[in-house]
Design a protein around this nucleic acid. Structure first.
Length: 513
RNA sequence: GGCGAGGUAGCUCAGUUGGUUAGAGCACAGGACUCAUAAGCCUGGGGUCGGCGGUUCGAAUCCGCCCCUCGCUACCA
C-alpha cells in the first residue's frame, strides 16, 4: 500500500489582494499536509493561482499591461503569501503555465472524443455592469426597459455561440458516486445541499466564451476560449504532469485525497469536476471538503463596513503561529467562524502563552537551574507518570482518525488537554520541594515532563510549526525525528547534551485599546 | 415558496442507541502554593436544555404543532 497523500487548496483568482479567506483555506490544507508527513506519508501539497478570464483581461488593459505580465505580478503576491503563512506547499501551479495548457487541451479533447461537448448558442439577459447573465424570472420590465431585479442594472438579450458540456448526462452517475462514497463531500451538511441540487436536475454547462480572449483557446476553434471551470479545475491534474498518466507523479498522487475549498465553490468541485472527470474517464478525487467563511466580528467582511481583516496585518502584529492556532481552535471547520480581536488575544494568552508556552518555560528553566541543564534520566516511573504519558499515547489512533476526517477542532481540543494535564502534573508533583528530599524522584518528574512536552509539541507541530520547532530544538531533536512514531520514544533524547536556551515562546498580548 | 441544518450557562460549544444532582473552555469570584510569561493548581456562583402538548416508570435526547436563526435554491469567482 502506497503511503502517498495529495492535498490541494483552491487556486486563487488574483484580481484583488489576498484576504483572510485565502489564508484560511491555505492554512487548513497546510495543517493536513504537515500532519500526514508526520505520519510518514509522501505528501504532495498544491496551491496556486487561476489567472484567466475577462476580469483579469480588463484590469490588465486598465493598467496598460499585457495580461501575462499583469498576472505575473498578481500571482507573485499569492506566492509570497505562502511564505508568510509558512505553508509547505510542494508546488505552485499557475493556469498560465505551459503544463496547464497541455493538460486543459487534453481534457478538452477527451471530452470531445467521448461526445460530451457540443456547439450551440448561449442566450440570456446579460448585464454588462454586473458581468452576469440572468434568468427570465430574475428580470423585470420597468419603464420599457428590462432590468435585473437584484441589482437594478439594465440587461440586454444576448446570444453567443458557445460550446456546451453535457452535464445533464452525468446526473445519475454523480448521485451514484455520492451514494457509494459517503465521505466524498464533507462536512455532511454540505453533502445534502449538493445532492438536493443535483436531484433537481442538471442543465448542460456552457464551457466556452467568445466575448474575450484571455484564456486557453478551444483546440479546434480559436474563436473560443475555454471557460473558467474547465480551465481552473484541471489545475489539480496539470500539476501532476497530466496528460502523462503513466508518469510517476500522476500515478503516485491521482486521485487526490482531498480538495480543501471554501463552501462558495463547493458546487464546482462536487459536481462539475467529478462530471468532467467521469466524462474524461479519469478517476475522481476521494474527497472535497468545503469549509465555512471567516467573518469579522460576526459580520461578513466588506469595504463599506470597514471590517476587512488583512491576514498580513494580523500576522505582523501577532505572529503566524498565533493566527494559525486561532483559526483552528476557535473556528469550527465547516461552519462560518468569526475573528474578533478580543477572542484572538484571549486565545493567544490562555492557550499559547499561559498554557503551552509557560509549560515549556517552567520545565526547561527548572532543569537549567537544578539539573545542570540536561534532560535527567528517569528512575522508576510511578503510576501517575505512566498514566499521563499513556493517556497521550493511547489517543494517537483516535487523533489520526480525527485528522483523516478533517476534524481539526476535536483534534486540537484533545491535544490542548494534554498540555493542561502536564501543567497539573508538574504542579501536583512539586519537583521544587523534592530538590533535597528526593532528587531521584525529582529527576523522574522532570524527565516525564520533558517527554510529554516533546509529545505535545509533535502533535501541535502541524498547527504551530514555528514555535514547536523552537521547542524541539531546545531539547536537541532533529528535524528527521519529527514523526508521530517518535511519540513515546524516549531513546531519541541525548541526556548528555545541554538544553538550548528558550526565549519567551508566545508574548502575552496586553489590552491596549 | 421548496429542500436542509440548528436553537443547551454571559460567550463558543459537547452531550453516543431516552436513565442517577445537564458538561467543557473562555469570562467572573474566592483559596492555598511558588518552578514559570503575576503563569499554573484548587473551589464556587450561574442553565424552566426555544415554546406548548404528547409517548414513557423516566426526555435536552422520541412524536406533533408553533416561534426564531442560518445554509442551499446553477454558469462573478
Amino acid at each position: 500500500m502506497n503511503k502517498n497523500f495529495y492535498i490541494t487548496t483552491p487556486i486563487y483568482y488574483p484580481s484583488g489582494k489576498p484576504h483572510m479567506g485565502h489564508a484560511y483555506s491555505s492554512i487548513v490544507a497546510d495543517i493536513f499536509a504537515r500532519f500526514k508527513r508526520l505520519e510518514g506519508y509522501d505528501v504532495l501539497f498544491l496551491t496556486g493561482t487561476d489567472e484567466h478570464g475577462q476580469k483579469i483581461q480588463k484590469e490588465a488593459e486598465k493598467n496598460n499591461k499585457n495580461p501575462k505580465e499583469f498576472c505575473d505580478e498578481l500571482s507573485e503576491k499569492f506566492r509570497s503569501l505562502t511564505k508568510i503563512l509558512n505553508l509547505t506547499n510542494d508546488d505552485f501551479i499557475r493556469t498560465t503555465e505551459q503544463r496547464h495548457y497541455d493538460a486543459v487541451k487534453d481534457i478538452w479533447n477527451r471530452l470531445v472524443k467521448s461526445g460530451d461537448i457540443y456547439l450551440d448558442k448561449y442566450s440570456g439577459w446579460y448585464s454588462v455592469s454586473d458581468e452576469a447573465f440572468y434568468d427570465e424570472d430574475e428580470v423585470e420590465k420597468k419603464e420599457g426597459k428590462r432590468i435585473a431585479k437584484s441589482s437594478g442594472s439594465t440587461v440586454d438579450w444576448v446570444e453567443e455561440e458557445s460550446y456546451f458540456f453535457k452535464l445533464s448526462a452525468w446526473q445519475d452517475k454523480l448521485l451514484d458516486y455520492y451514494k457509494k462514497n459517503k465521505d466524498f463531500i464533507l462536512p455532511s451538511s454540505r453533502k445534502n445541499e449538493v445532492i438536493s441540487f443535483v436531484k433537481k436536475g442538471l442543465k448542460d454547462l456552457s464551457i466556452s466564451r467568445t466575448s474575450f480572449t484571455w484564456g486557453i483557446q478551444v483546440p479546434e476553434n480559436s474563436k473560443h476560449i475555454i471557460y473558467v471551470w474547465l480551465d481552473a479545475l484541471t489545475n489539480y491534474i496539470s500539476a501532476l504532469n497530466f496528460p502523462d498518466t503513466d508518469g510517476t507523479k500522476y500515478k503516485s498522487f491521482w486521485p487526490a485525497d482531498v480538495h480543501i475549498i471554501g463552501k462558495d465553490i463547493l458546487r464546482f468541485h462536487a459536481i462539475y469536476w467529478p462530471a468532467f472527470l467521469l466524462a474524461a474517464k479519469l478517476p475522481l478525487p476521494k474527497r472535497v471538503f468545503g469549509h465555512g467563511w471567516i467573518l469579522s466580528d460576526e459580520k461578513k467582511m466588506s469595504k463599506s463596513l470597514g471590517n476587512i481583516l488583512d491576514p498580513i496585518e494580523i500576522i505582523n502584529k501577532y505572529g503566524i503561529d498565533q493566527l494559525r492556532y486561532y483559526l483552528i481552535k476557535e473556528v469550527s471547520l465547516g461552519n462560518d467562524g468569526s475573528i474578533s480581536m478580543q477572542n484572538l488575544k484571549n486565545c493567544i494568552n490562555n492557550d499559547l502563552a499561559n498554557n503551552y508556552g509557560n509549560l515549556c518555560q517552567r520545565v526547561f528553566s527548572f532543569i537549567k537551574k537544578n539539573c545542570s541543564n540536561r534532560i535527567p534520566r528517569s528512575n522508576k516511573l510511578e503510576t501517575k507518570d505512566i498514566k499521563m504519558l499513556d493517556n497521550l499515547k493511547d489517543k494517537i489512533p483516535d487523533l489520526i482518525k480525527l485528522i483523516n476526517k478533517q476534524n481539526l477542532n476535536e483534534y486540537i481540543k484533545i491535544v490542548v488537554s494534554f498540555s493542561f494535564d502536564a501543567n497539573k502534573y508538574f504542579n501536583d508533583s512539586e519537583p521544587w520541594s523534592l530538590k533535597k528530599s528526593d532528587p531521584n524522584r525529582m529527576n523522574t518528574i522532570l524527565y516525564t515532563s520533558v517527554e510529554q512536552i516533546k509529545n505535545i509539541s509533535i502533535l501541535l507541530n502541524p498547527i504551530i510549526p514555528e514555535s514547536t520547532n523552537k521547542v524541539l530544538d531546545v531539547i536537541n531533536l532533529k528535524k528527521k525525528d519529527l514523526l508521530i512514531e517518535n511519540i513515546s520514544n524516549d531513546s531519541i533524547f541525548d541526556h548528555n547534551q545541554e538544553l538550548k536556551n528558550l526565549d519567551i515562546l508566545f508574548k502575552k498580548i496586553e489590552n491596549d485599546n
